[in-house]
Nucleic acid binder design. Structure first.
Lengths: 150, 150
DNA sequence: CTATATGCAAATAGTTTGCCTGTTA
DNA sequence: TAACAGGCAAACTATTTGCATATAG
Protein backbone atom coordinates (compact mmCIF):
# COMPACT_ATOMS: atom_id res chain seq x y z
CA UNK A 1 0.00 0.00 0.00
CA UNK A 2 2.41 2.61 1.25
CA UNK A 3 5.37 1.03 -0.49
CA UNK A 4 5.32 3.52 -3.35
CA UNK A 5 5.51 6.57 -1.16
CA UNK A 6 9.22 6.41 -0.63
CA UNK A 7 10.08 5.48 -4.17
CA UNK A 8 9.59 8.78 -5.94
CA UNK A 9 10.18 11.81 -3.74
CA UNK A 10 13.38 12.77 -5.54
CA UNK A 11 11.74 12.19 -8.89
CA UNK A 12 8.90 14.52 -7.91
CA UNK A 13 11.29 17.12 -6.60
CA UNK A 14 13.31 17.07 -9.82
CA UNK A 15 10.28 17.15 -12.07
CA UNK A 16 8.82 20.11 -10.26
CA UNK A 17 12.13 21.96 -10.37
CA UNK A 18 12.47 21.35 -14.08
CA UNK A 19 9.19 23.17 -14.60
CA UNK A 20 10.17 25.99 -12.24
CA UNK A 21 7.84 24.74 -9.53
CA UNK A 22 8.62 24.17 -5.86
CA UNK A 23 8.47 20.99 -3.89
CA UNK A 24 5.90 21.11 -1.09
CA UNK A 25 4.56 18.47 1.30
CA UNK A 26 1.09 19.02 -0.18
CA UNK A 27 2.26 18.26 -3.71
CA UNK A 28 3.95 15.12 -2.43
CA UNK A 29 0.79 14.13 -0.58
CA UNK A 30 -1.48 14.69 -3.59
CA UNK A 31 0.87 12.72 -5.80
CA UNK A 32 0.96 9.89 -3.23
CA UNK A 33 -2.83 9.76 -3.22
CA UNK A 34 -2.89 9.34 -6.99
CA UNK A 35 -0.21 6.64 -6.89
CA UNK A 36 -1.76 4.73 -3.98
CA UNK A 37 -5.11 4.05 -5.60
CA UNK A 38 -5.15 4.36 -9.34
CA UNK A 39 -8.87 4.69 -9.79
CA UNK A 40 -8.83 8.09 -11.52
CA UNK A 41 -10.25 10.13 -8.64
CA UNK A 42 -11.79 13.56 -9.04
CA UNK A 43 -10.25 16.59 -7.35
CA UNK A 44 -12.73 16.25 -4.51
CA UNK A 45 -11.88 12.57 -3.99
CA UNK A 46 -8.19 13.46 -3.91
CA UNK A 47 -9.00 16.13 -1.34
CA UNK A 48 -10.86 13.72 0.93
CA UNK A 49 -8.10 11.13 0.75
CA UNK A 50 -5.31 13.65 1.23
CA UNK A 51 -7.01 14.99 4.35
CA UNK A 52 -6.31 11.74 6.18
CA UNK A 53 -2.62 12.57 6.33
CA UNK A 54 -2.81 16.32 5.78
CA UNK A 55 -5.94 17.42 7.66
CA UNK A 56 -5.36 21.11 6.91
CA UNK A 57 -5.12 20.79 3.14
CA UNK A 58 -7.68 22.83 1.19
CA UNK A 59 -9.48 22.29 -2.12
CA UNK A 60 -7.70 25.27 -3.66
CA UNK A 61 -4.39 23.66 -2.78
CA UNK A 62 -5.50 20.32 -4.21
CA UNK A 63 -6.33 22.01 -7.51
CA UNK A 64 -3.03 23.86 -7.39
CA UNK A 65 -1.12 20.64 -6.71
CA UNK A 66 -2.94 18.73 -9.43
CA UNK A 67 -2.18 21.51 -11.91
CA UNK A 68 1.46 21.47 -10.86
CA UNK A 69 1.65 17.70 -11.40
CA UNK A 70 0.04 18.03 -14.82
CA UNK A 71 2.40 20.88 -15.73
CA UNK A 72 5.49 18.89 -14.84
CA UNK A 73 4.25 15.86 -16.76
CA UNK A 74 3.62 13.38 -13.97
CA UNK A 75 -0.18 13.33 -14.18
CA UNK A 76 -2.82 13.47 -16.92
CA UNK A 77 -6.32 14.87 -16.81
CA UNK A 78 -9.11 12.55 -17.90
CA UNK A 79 -12.37 14.03 -19.10
CA UNK A 80 -15.51 11.96 -19.24
CA UNK A 81 -18.81 13.44 -20.29
CA UNK A 82 -20.03 16.39 -18.27
CA UNK A 83 -18.66 14.99 -15.03
CA UNK A 84 -15.78 16.36 -12.96
CA UNK A 85 -12.26 16.06 -14.34
CA UNK A 86 -10.38 12.99 -13.16
CA UNK A 87 -6.64 12.52 -12.68
CA UNK A 88 -4.33 9.70 -13.76
CA UNK A 89 -0.67 9.22 -12.76
CA UNK A 90 -0.06 6.61 -15.48
CA UNK A 91 1.91 8.42 -18.18
CA UNK A 92 2.43 5.35 -20.35
CA UNK A 93 0.67 5.07 -23.70
CA UNK A 94 -2.83 3.98 -22.78
CA UNK A 95 -6.44 4.99 -23.04
CA UNK A 96 -9.41 5.13 -20.68
CA UNK A 97 -12.55 3.09 -20.49
CA UNK A 98 -15.58 4.56 -18.78
CA UNK A 99 -18.21 2.06 -17.61
CA UNK A 100 -21.73 3.39 -18.15
CA UNK A 101 -23.06 0.95 -15.54
CA UNK A 102 -20.75 1.42 -12.54
CA UNK A 103 -19.06 4.70 -13.44
CA UNK A 104 -15.53 3.36 -12.97
CA UNK A 105 -12.72 4.61 -15.17
CA UNK A 106 -10.18 1.95 -16.12
CA UNK A 107 -6.85 2.08 -17.91
CA UNK A 108 -6.74 0.11 -21.17
CA UNK A 109 -3.47 -0.66 -22.90
CA UNK A 110 -3.07 0.41 -26.51
CA UNK A 111 -0.97 -1.09 -29.26
CA UNK A 112 2.61 0.04 -29.44
CA UNK A 113 1.70 2.08 -32.51
CA UNK A 114 -0.67 4.14 -30.38
CA UNK A 115 -4.12 5.26 -31.39
CA UNK A 116 -2.87 8.37 -33.16
CA UNK A 117 -1.33 6.09 -35.75
CA UNK A 118 -4.85 5.06 -36.66
CA UNK A 119 -5.89 8.62 -37.42
CA UNK A 120 -4.87 10.25 -40.68
CA UNK A 121 -4.04 13.66 -39.31
CA UNK A 122 -4.02 16.13 -42.21
CA UNK A 123 -0.70 17.86 -42.81
CA UNK A 124 -0.21 21.14 -41.00
CA UNK A 125 -1.50 19.96 -37.65
CA UNK A 126 1.02 19.75 -34.83
CA UNK A 127 -0.24 17.10 -32.44
CA UNK A 128 1.26 17.28 -28.95
CA UNK A 129 -1.29 15.27 -26.95
CA UNK A 130 -4.05 12.83 -27.62
CA UNK A 131 -6.70 11.13 -25.56
CA UNK A 132 -8.69 8.09 -26.56
CA UNK A 133 -11.64 7.37 -24.32
CA UNK A 134 -13.88 4.35 -24.65
CA UNK A 135 -17.32 3.86 -23.17
CA UNK A 136 -19.54 0.86 -22.61
CA UNK A 137 -19.62 -1.93 -20.04
CA UNK A 138 -16.63 -3.09 -18.02
CA UNK A 139 -16.08 -6.87 -17.69
CA UNK A 140 -17.66 -7.00 -14.22
CA UNK A 141 -20.82 -5.21 -15.28
CA UNK A 142 -21.02 -7.17 -18.53
CA UNK A 143 -21.00 -10.40 -16.52
CA UNK A 144 -23.70 -9.13 -14.18
CA UNK A 145 -25.82 -7.99 -17.11
CA UNK A 146 -25.53 -11.44 -18.70
CA UNK A 147 -26.67 -13.18 -15.52
CA UNK A 148 -29.87 -11.13 -15.48
CA UNK A 149 -30.80 -12.67 -18.82
CA UNK A 150 -31.09 -16.15 -17.30
CA UNK B 1 -25.89 29.17 -45.45
CA UNK B 2 -29.54 28.43 -44.90
CA UNK B 3 -29.64 25.75 -47.55
CA UNK B 4 -29.46 22.91 -45.05
CA UNK B 5 -32.39 24.05 -42.98
CA UNK B 6 -35.01 22.58 -45.24
CA UNK B 7 -33.14 19.38 -45.93
CA UNK B 8 -33.67 17.52 -42.72
CA UNK B 9 -36.89 18.39 -40.91
CA UNK B 10 -38.47 15.03 -41.62
CA UNK B 11 -35.29 13.25 -40.64
CA UNK B 12 -35.25 15.09 -37.32
CA UNK B 13 -38.93 14.36 -36.73
CA UNK B 14 -38.42 10.66 -37.40
CA UNK B 15 -35.30 10.37 -35.31
CA UNK B 16 -36.96 12.03 -32.35
CA UNK B 17 -40.03 9.80 -32.69
CA UNK B 18 -37.86 6.68 -32.82
CA UNK B 19 -36.49 7.60 -29.41
CA UNK B 20 -39.93 8.43 -28.03
CA UNK B 21 -39.24 12.16 -28.15
CA UNK B 22 -41.44 14.88 -29.63
CA UNK B 23 -40.70 17.27 -32.43
CA UNK B 24 -40.64 20.90 -31.30
CA UNK B 25 -39.64 24.13 -33.05
CA UNK B 26 -36.93 24.63 -30.43
CA UNK B 27 -35.33 21.26 -31.16
CA UNK B 28 -35.39 22.07 -34.85
CA UNK B 29 -33.84 25.45 -34.16
CA UNK B 30 -31.07 24.05 -31.99
CA UNK B 31 -30.29 21.40 -34.58
CA UNK B 32 -30.21 24.06 -37.31
CA UNK B 33 -27.73 26.09 -35.30
CA UNK B 34 -25.42 23.09 -35.05
CA UNK B 35 -25.72 22.33 -38.76
CA UNK B 36 -25.27 25.94 -39.85
CA UNK B 37 -21.86 26.51 -38.30
CA UNK B 38 -19.97 23.37 -37.46
CA UNK B 39 -17.54 24.90 -35.04
CA UNK B 40 -18.49 22.74 -32.05
CA UNK B 41 -20.24 25.44 -30.02
CA UNK B 42 -20.89 25.21 -26.30
CA UNK B 43 -24.44 25.17 -24.96
CA UNK B 44 -24.21 28.87 -24.29
CA UNK B 45 -23.05 29.62 -27.82
CA UNK B 46 -25.93 27.56 -29.19
CA UNK B 47 -28.26 29.55 -26.94
CA UNK B 48 -26.98 32.91 -28.20
CA UNK B 49 -27.25 31.85 -31.84
CA UNK B 50 -30.67 30.26 -31.42
CA UNK B 51 -32.00 33.46 -29.85
CA UNK B 52 -31.66 35.27 -33.16
CA UNK B 53 -34.54 33.27 -34.59
CA UNK B 54 -36.18 32.17 -31.34
CA UNK B 55 -35.79 35.14 -28.97
CA UNK B 56 -37.76 33.45 -26.19
CA UNK B 57 -35.69 30.28 -26.01
CA UNK B 58 -34.10 29.58 -22.61
CA UNK B 59 -30.88 27.92 -21.54
CA UNK B 60 -32.78 25.08 -19.87
CA UNK B 61 -34.50 24.40 -23.19
CA UNK B 62 -31.21 24.50 -25.06
CA UNK B 63 -29.79 21.86 -22.72
CA UNK B 64 -32.97 19.81 -23.08
CA UNK B 65 -32.82 20.04 -26.88
CA UNK B 66 -29.14 19.15 -27.01
CA UNK B 67 -29.78 16.15 -24.78
CA UNK B 68 -32.67 15.10 -27.01
CA UNK B 69 -30.45 15.34 -30.11
CA UNK B 70 -27.73 13.31 -28.41
CA UNK B 71 -30.29 10.72 -27.28
CA UNK B 72 -31.67 10.24 -30.77
CA UNK B 73 -28.20 9.93 -32.24
CA UNK B 74 -27.95 13.10 -34.32
CA UNK B 75 -25.38 14.92 -32.22
CA UNK B 76 -22.29 14.02 -30.20
CA UNK B 77 -20.88 15.66 -27.11
CA UNK B 78 -17.25 16.73 -27.26
CA UNK B 79 -15.32 17.16 -24.02
CA UNK B 80 -12.12 19.15 -23.94
CA UNK B 81 -10.22 19.74 -20.72
CA UNK B 82 -12.13 21.45 -17.95
CA UNK B 83 -14.04 23.64 -20.37
CA UNK B 84 -17.73 23.52 -21.20
CA UNK B 85 -19.08 20.59 -23.20
CA UNK B 86 -19.25 21.19 -26.95
CA UNK B 87 -21.66 19.72 -29.49
CA UNK B 88 -21.01 18.20 -32.90
CA UNK B 89 -23.62 17.20 -35.51
CA UNK B 90 -21.12 15.17 -37.53
CA UNK B 91 -21.90 11.52 -36.76
CA UNK B 92 -19.37 10.09 -39.20
CA UNK B 93 -16.28 8.32 -37.91
CA UNK B 94 -13.95 11.16 -37.01
CA UNK B 95 -12.05 12.66 -34.14
CA UNK B 96 -11.50 16.14 -32.74
CA UNK B 97 -8.51 18.40 -32.69
CA UNK B 98 -8.30 21.10 -30.04
CA UNK B 99 -5.93 23.98 -30.79
CA UNK B 100 -4.10 25.12 -27.67
CA UNK B 101 -3.36 28.49 -29.32
CA UNK B 102 -6.74 29.62 -30.67
CA UNK B 103 -9.09 27.29 -28.80
CA UNK B 104 -10.87 26.10 -31.94
CA UNK B 105 -12.15 22.54 -32.16
CA UNK B 106 -11.81 20.97 -35.61
CA UNK B 107 -13.02 17.70 -37.07
CA UNK B 108 -10.25 15.38 -38.25
CA UNK B 109 -10.99 12.40 -40.45
CA UNK B 110 -9.87 8.99 -39.26
CA UNK B 111 -8.94 5.92 -41.22
CA UNK B 112 -11.77 3.63 -42.19
CA UNK B 113 -10.55 1.19 -39.56
CA UNK B 114 -11.27 3.76 -36.89
CA UNK B 115 -9.07 4.54 -33.92
CA UNK B 116 -10.56 1.78 -31.79
CA UNK B 117 -8.91 -0.69 -34.14
CA UNK B 118 -5.59 0.67 -32.90
CA UNK B 119 -6.40 -0.15 -29.30
CA UNK B 120 -6.11 -3.70 -28.00
CA UNK B 121 -9.21 -3.73 -25.87
CA UNK B 122 -8.90 -6.63 -23.39
CA UNK B 123 -11.59 -9.25 -23.73
CA UNK B 124 -14.67 -8.75 -21.58
CA UNK B 125 -15.07 -5.06 -22.33
CA UNK B 126 -18.16 -4.06 -24.31
CA UNK B 127 -17.27 -0.87 -26.16
CA UNK B 128 -20.27 1.13 -27.37
CA UNK B 129 -18.71 4.56 -27.93
CA UNK B 130 -15.27 6.00 -28.30
CA UNK B 131 -13.81 9.44 -28.56
CA UNK B 132 -10.36 10.32 -29.82
CA UNK B 133 -9.29 13.87 -29.11
CA UNK B 134 -6.06 15.41 -30.28
CA UNK B 135 -4.41 18.56 -28.99
CA UNK B 136 -1.69 20.82 -30.28
CA UNK B 137 -1.54 23.57 -32.92
CA UNK B 138 -3.93 23.90 -35.83
CA UNK B 139 -2.44 24.68 -39.27
CA UNK B 140 -3.29 28.40 -39.01
CA UNK B 141 -1.64 28.83 -35.63
CA UNK B 142 1.33 26.67 -36.64
CA UNK B 143 1.94 29.00 -39.59
CA UNK B 144 1.67 32.08 -37.39
CA UNK B 145 4.04 30.55 -34.83
CA UNK B 146 6.60 29.83 -37.56
CA UNK B 147 6.50 33.42 -38.84
CA UNK B 148 7.42 34.71 -35.39
CA UNK B 149 10.70 32.81 -35.64
CA UNK B 150 11.92 34.99 -38.53
C1' DC C 1 14.92 37.60 1.67
C1' DT C 2 11.73 37.17 -2.07
C1' DA C 3 9.02 34.66 -5.00
C1' DT C 4 5.91 31.18 -4.72
C1' DA C 5 2.49 28.19 -2.30
C1' DT C 6 -1.08 27.58 1.19
C1' DG C 7 -5.62 28.18 3.33
C1' DC C 8 -9.80 30.33 3.66
C1' DA C 9 -13.77 32.35 1.75
C1' DA C 10 -16.14 34.44 -1.76
C1' DA C 11 -17.00 34.49 -6.70
C1' DT C 12 -17.83 32.26 -11.25
C1' DA C 13 -19.07 29.07 -14.75
C1' DG C 14 -21.54 25.25 -16.26
C1' DT C 15 -25.35 22.53 -15.65
C1' DT C 16 -29.54 20.74 -13.38
C1' DT C 17 -33.95 20.98 -11.10
C1' DG C 18 -38.69 22.42 -9.68
C1' DC C 19 -42.73 24.28 -10.83
C1' DC C 20 -46.17 26.09 -13.49
C1' DT C 21 -47.83 26.89 -18.19
C1' DG C 22 -47.97 25.71 -23.04
C1' DT C 23 -47.91 22.35 -26.83
C1' DT C 24 -47.59 17.94 -29.31
C1' DA C 25 -49.45 13.66 -30.83
C1' DT D 1 -56.48 15.46 -23.12
C1' DA D 2 -52.61 13.30 -21.16
C1' DA D 3 -47.84 13.08 -21.41
C1' DC D 4 -44.17 15.68 -22.65
C1' DA D 5 -41.65 20.15 -23.54
C1' DG D 6 -40.78 25.09 -22.63
C1' DG D 7 -39.63 29.14 -19.74
C1' DC D 8 -38.11 31.10 -15.63
C1' DA D 9 -35.62 31.20 -11.49
C1' DA D 10 -33.36 29.01 -7.96
C1' DA D 11 -30.14 25.37 -6.69
C1' DC D 12 -26.07 22.80 -7.26
C1' DT D 13 -21.44 21.23 -8.57
C1' DA D 14 -16.98 22.01 -10.21
C1' DT D 15 -13.53 25.19 -10.50
C1' DT D 16 -11.23 29.71 -9.97
C1' DT D 17 -9.82 33.90 -7.69
C1' DG D 18 -8.33 37.38 -4.10
C1' DC D 19 -5.94 38.12 -0.24
C1' DA D 20 -3.34 37.55 3.96
C1' DT D 21 -0.04 34.32 5.93
C1' DA D 22 3.48 30.80 5.62
C1' DT D 23 7.41 28.60 3.53
C1' DA D 24 10.80 26.83 -0.04
C1' DG D 25 14.98 27.87 -2.29
Amino acid sequence: MLSRKKEIPEQLNERLATSGLRFTPQRQQVYNVLLDTRDHPTAEEVFLRAKHESPDISMATVYNCLDALVTCGLVRQVNVNRAATRYCPNMNDHCHFYCDDCGKVLDVNCTSAGPVAGAKVPSGFQVTHYELSLRGRCPDCATKANKLHH
